[in-house]
Design a protein around this nucleic acid. Sequence first.
DNA 1: CTTCCTGCAAACCTTTTGCATGCCT
DNA 2: AGGCATGCAAAAGGTTTGCAGGAAG
Lengths: 164, 164
Amino acid sequence: MERKRLDEQIASKGVRLTAQRRAVIASLQEADVHLDAATLLERARQRNPNIDRATVYRTLELLKKLGLIDELDLMHLEGEKHYFEAKSVRGHFHLACFTCGAIVEYTSSTFEQLKQEITSEHGFEIQVVRLEVGGQCEKCRRLPRDSQLSESGEHTPRAVSQKA
Amino acid sequence: MERKRLDEQIASKGVRLTAQRRAVIASLQEADVHLDAATLLERARQRNPNIDRATVYRTLELLKKLGLIDELDLMHLEGEKHYFEAKSVRGHFHLACFTCGAIVEYTSSTFEQLKQEITSEHGFEIQVVRLEVGGQCEKCRRLPRDSQLSESGEHTPRAVSQKA
DNA sequence: CTTCCTGCAAACCTTTTGCATGCCT
DNA sequence: AGGCATGCAAAAGGTTTGCAGGAAG
């Protein structure tokens, strides 16, 4: 999923950043997956070891205020923490598999159409959309129960019970 | 939005309930708006004064496990708490106005179509869908900034800043 | 000189859990 | 007896805030 360059976007708004915030933002930008605040802190510290939790949260707050990132729950698959990603050029949403923990990104013109409808038929000005789907992915549906879990380390099926 | 009768659904599953749980469930069922756990506790206590927080959470957990309620974030308009509602017969989602705090329920055949697509094109078995839209409602868009806030007590615009 | 940023620690809020007790079958 | 439900209090987990010191304009 192609995402917007955060640093450029910020620069174009005339906002100046400190070294710490740049480290946080760069870590977020280059992440291949959706990061939660704790992981983001960890990665930012690889660039700038004395960054504090608070700075991460304050930077995320700034990015939210500028409308440059999305905040996700990912169906609370692993608790109440939030995940962040740079806004993508095209809208997309996430399918979360309760069995294997996989998160799949999904784009659909029907989704775009739905947003269109909300705007035009309801007069609602959309600023943020969060669509998250939980269930069982194709792979897990076809396989005997639990055979997914040990196959790959990239997914962490923390909670099989649905939280929403 | 027409919602399923929780007590009937539960009975039909052969689950027996205690008086406390019935009080919680009845309070949830009759609520006109989406309740968070604290408010639900408050209302349940009007029926049965010595109900504890833990009982409310444990009852909600049961209802989730039975697939009878939906858990919402409502765009974190008022913090991290969750809101609950009996599942409705037809799928619906919520438009949250960051300005006046109004929550509008929305149904759309395009939404149904989108779910259809996810299932058929992606082989994903949907168990839970959460679609939440944040922005500015028609009324607020037309009015000068902030003139909504004092007009009505039914909406509580705790956070104008978007959290997602 | 003023403003904003920072780390640190403490506070906050919602949700979860351990435990001893009690109810119901 | 056995199993589940309950209240209470404490813990957990993520996020926010007060504060004093610093850097930058």
